[in-house]
Amino acid sequence: MKYRVTTATRTSRVAGLVTLAVLVFVALAPQWGTRADLRLIVEFCYFLALAQMWNLLAGYAGLVSVGQQAFVGLGGYGLFVFTIYLGVSPLMAMLLSGIAAAIFALPTAFVVFRLRGAYFAIGTWVVAEVYRLSFAQVSALGGGSGKSLPISVIRSIADSRAEREVLIFYVGLAVAVFATGIVYWILRSRHGLALTAIRDSEPASESLGVNNFNAKLVIYVIAAAVTGFVGALIFIQKLRISPDAAFALTDWTAYVIFIVVIGGIGRIEGPIIGTIVFFVLQEFLAELGTWYLMILGIMAVVIMLKAPQGLWGLVADRFGIQFFPVQRRLHVEATRDKEA
């Protein structure tokens, strides 16, 4: 008997082409879009990247962190430290900020990995607060009131404002594609099998030879690196940083959780759908101020109760489609095909 294993499906091939077409269209935005369009797309990109990372943590590794703003903040401050005090070029500084966030993730993991479930969530939050309060003490970085990126550094990104915006736009697009791509790549790898197993049953995965602790640690560090890079991107766009903005629970974690929950946790497509929904809502409801946040909260609660698999989950489960197929399907090629 012959065995063959495939992952791709017909819809996934079509989806691949559609994704590519959309990407090309978006990549040409500097030709067709206004400055405001570019800015909005960069915001979309960094929320998508943050959401992909949070989904990887919570949806697969079972690490429900509410402290990812720690790494956004570390990455953001990393940008300022590397460019202002170490004279590194901005793009290189963004990469180094991601690496720095990953390095900080190790001692952070050492603390929070001792905690389980809800305690883990609270622990990550507390650690993020510790980082926020610590950075507020550093007067060289502007203490509690923050610091602006000096003109010399801004000029070193690119000479004109238009060029800077285009450069930041492409970095944003790249990180969104990278974040989605790395999640997809991890899930299709051997490590992805372990993660999905951990998501479904920790005792069973451990007793089948999976080192749960290491598998989770690797994911925590990868998520920190990408989140840190995104942090640097956010603050190179904003040009000004303060502890409250850098370590903002609402902006960098609460919205991100909303995006993942609405879109569909534990699925690669979830963060994409969630980010689209989030930006559409923001477009129409942002003037409502506090009411906007309440509407987001109510939506999240309703989705969690009525459709815990998220909006994408509703569609995917009904029609059996996967845009990013990670399932391995076994085909038996014998005298007769016994595939179910």
């Binding site: 065995y3 294993v5 790898s189 051997r190 099998l193 372990a194 999905t196 197993a197 998501r199 479904d200 049953s201 005792p203 069973a204 995965s205 089948l208 030879g209 999976v210 080192n211 534990g266 399932q327 391995r328 399907r329 076994l330």
Partner: peptide, 29 residues
Amino acid sequence: HPFEGMTVFENLLVGACFGTDRAEKQCYE
């Protein structure tokens, strides 16, 4: 304790890949 979101075949792959430390492709057969 099945891995409910994975296929039956993938459930076995987890055991084969990690229980015996082999590359995924070598576990299919």
